[in-house]
Every structure is written in C-alpha cells, then in structure tokens.
Computed example of a mutant assay.
Amino acid sequence: MRSTRTFSGRRAVVSAALCGALVGVGALAGGCGSEDAVAEDPEVSTQPSEEASAPPRTSGLIVLSAPAEGATVEGSFEASGKANSPEANVPWEIRDSSGEPVLEGHATAEGWMDKLYPWKTTVDVSDLEPGTYVFIARTDDTSDGEGKPAEEVGATITVE
C-alpha cells in the first residue's frame, strides 16, 4: 500500500511499512493512514494539459486517454482513461458551445478505492448536430457535497 503526502508543495509516495517507521521518528506526523490519503498510479501524470483553453486531461482521481484533444468524431467513438471514483462509476457528458450538457452517460472502471483503474465506453454522437463540443468525464460524488468534490477532465471534439 502506498500513501501520497504533500510536504512544502512536494508530493511523496510512501509505502505503508516506511510510513509507520517515519511516523515513529516524527518525519510524517499526522500523515499516514489518514482519510485524506490519495492513491497514485506512478505511470500516470497528474499534471494538467499544457493548453490553457482545453479542459485538463488529468486530475488526481481521473485521467482522460481518449478522445484526444481536438479529435474529429462521427457516429460513435471510444472514450477511455483511468479513474478512482466511488463504486467505480465514471459519469460523462458532452457539452455544447454554451457549456450546456447535450448528451450524458457513464462508464464503469475496473475497480476503485486504492488506485486509478482503467475505464472505457462507447459514446454514440450520431444524433448530435455537426459542430464543436467538449467531452467531459468525471469522478462521482455520492455524498451530496459532504465528501471529496467530483473532479472532471475533458477534451474538445468536433462532431461531423
């Protein structure tokens, strides 16, 4: 088990055994085993996209692998990524140019709670008018705002 902690703006990944030892010497006082622990997949960057105008493609709990930013789609396309969302539920939506949702659904990740798990779904856009949209995938917040807020990632797409 690994735990991610932030120290002076820097993140550290610490194993449970090392965490216990470090707490014993005061190096991680209050850090190990707390409810705010964030699982981290070392193969996934949690840095947002470089493009300021595009929605972020990664956050701490969800990553969007496909569609690519600026992708042109028609008929249907596969959306995929990794997530750690309650009950493995990954809600998604497509928003029009005014930001209003015009299509929504959900995917199911292969797991949840301890790390980011792969998810994928097929999105049917055949009923949408041609144009520019934003595909958004997010984590679920089943606590009515009392738990961690939902995180979202996205990509601008063009529907033909």
Rank of each mutant, 00 (worst) to 15 (best):
E87P: 00
P56M: 07
E78S: 09
P55V: 09
S49F: 05
A83M: 10
V102E: 07
A52K: 10
E74S: 15
T58W: 04
G105S: 07
P48V: 02
G105A: 07
I62V: 09
P55I: 14
Q47G: 08
S85Y: 07
T72S: 14
P101Q: 13
G70K: 09
G75E: 02
A54N: 12
A88L: 04
S53R: 08
E78Q: 13
E100I: 13
S98L: 07
N84G: 01
E104A: 12
G99R: 06
S80K: 12
R95W: 06
G60T: 12
A71N: 08
I62P: 00
E69G: 12
E100A: 15
P56V: 01
Q47R: 14
S80T: 03
P48E: 05
E50K: 12
N84Q: 04
E69V: 15
G99D: 00
E69D: 13
A52M: 03
L61S: 03
G60M: 12
E74Q: 14
E51R: 13
P101I: 03
K82R: 15
I62T: 00
P56H: 11
E69C: 05
G105P: 00
N84Y: 01
L103C: 07
G60S: 12
F77L: 03
W92E: 00
S76T: 02
V73P: 04
A68R: 13
S97Y: 08
S45C: 08
W92P: 00
P101H: 14
T72C: 06
A83S: 13
A54V: 13
S65D: 12
P48L: 11
H106A: 14
E93N: 14
S45V: 08
F77V: 00
A88Q: 09
L64V: 02
I62S: 00
S97A: 15
P55F: 09
S76C: 01
E104K: 14
A54T: 11
R57L: 05
F77R: 05
V63C: 07
L64A: 09
G75Y: 01
V73W: 07
K82Q: 10
P86N: 09
E93Q: 13
S45F: 08
A88F: 05
S80L: 05
G75D: 03
I62H: 01
E78R: 14
V73K: 08
E50Y: 11
W92R: 10
S76H: 05
V73M: 06
S80H: 05
V63F: 11
V102T: 06
V73L: 06
T58R: 14
S85Q: 08
V90E: 08
G60K: 12
P48K: 10
A88N: 07
E69T: 14
E51Y: 11
S45H: 08
E78Y: 03
E93I: 03
T72Q: 15
S80E: 05
K82L: 09
V63D: 03
V63R: 13
R95I: 10
T58K: 11
I62E: 00
S65T: 02
E78I: 11
G75Q: 02
L64T: 04
S97V: 12
P55G: 09
A68G: 08
A88E: 01
S53H: 09
E78T: 15
A88V: 03
R95K: 15
E51I: 02
E104V: 00
I94K: 10
L61Q: 02
L64D: 06
